[in-house]
């Protein structure tokens, strides 16, 4: 076990946490926008929302992440950090990975929220319209608050999946937990099982409390019907 001291395990898992939190924020914003588009009364918005969700949700995440680096950065020249900085490659890769993870996870958040919208009784929206609220107001004030409260549990699953999906970021060189695992496997070829176990425990330590906490929150805020 003493070989673990030569590696910055905590630092690597900290990058994993940062990737998870930042992409989760992006994914929630994108998910709400997409869900609003998919339940809106405008056919073009519904079609665009549905097309985005179906294309991105069915694309392998590895492809999305490598696409951000080879496609957006290398070919289209999109840089998300200052090109002159010495940290340019690391910062740019990290932000590209956050972008890719948010674009991908947003589709799952959208579908979870949409299922929540469908669970809100139709009378709620009809009553809101009857008192004169516009579509945006109906969604913001009446429907979405109830919808999101009822989908905390499925969103927790999405968040846990996202935590584990951050390992794909190593494909474009983000120094998170799985890239450190690759380094450890390369250097300590005879301790493979041990390395796997340590990294797996690390992920369980991250995801288990998230599941428990959000499970508690789901029970607390869920709308009793």
């Amino acid at each position: 076990m003493d070989f673990l001291g030569r590696y910055d395990l905590l630092g690597a898992f900290w990058v994993t946490v940062q990737l998870t939190v930042l992409s989760a924020c992006g994914a929630v914003v994108l998910g709400i926008v997409l869900a609003a588009m998919r339940v809106s009364p405008v056919p073009l918005m519904r079609a665009c929302g549905a097309a985005y969700v179906n294309v991105v949700r069915n694309t392998p995440l590895t492809l999305v992440i490598i696409g951000t680096s080879l496609g957006l950065y290398q070919t289209l020249g999109l840089t998300l950090a200052s090109d002159t900085s010495t940290e340019f490659i690391d910062t740019n890769n990290f932000r590209l990975a956050v972008l890719g993870l948010a674009l991908y996870t947003g589709t799952f958040v959208c579908e979870a929220i949409r299922s929540g919208v469908n669970a809100v009784p139709i009378g709620q929206a009809e009553a809101a319209r009857a008192v004169g609220l516009r579509f945006g107001q109906v969604l913001r004030i009446v429907v979405l608050p109830q919808a999101i409260r009822s989908v905390v549990a499925p969103l927790a699953s999405v968040l846990i999946a996202l935590t584990k999906n951050t390992t794909i970021a190593s494909a474009i060189g983000v120094a998170e937990a799985s890239l450190l695992m690759k380094e450890m496997l390369e250097n300590e070829g005879d301790k493979g099982i041990l390395v796997f176990t340590v990294v797996a425990i690390g992920f369980v330590v991250l995801t288990l409390p998230v599941g428990v906490a959000l499970g508690w929150l789901a029970r607390r805020v869920g709308v009793k019907r």
Binding site: T62, F88, S170, G173
Partner: peptide, 8 residues
């Protein structure tokens, strides 16, 4: 002094 880009 050197930027390292890692890929899969």
């Amino acid at each position: 002094s050197v930027g390292l880009q890692q890929y899969g």
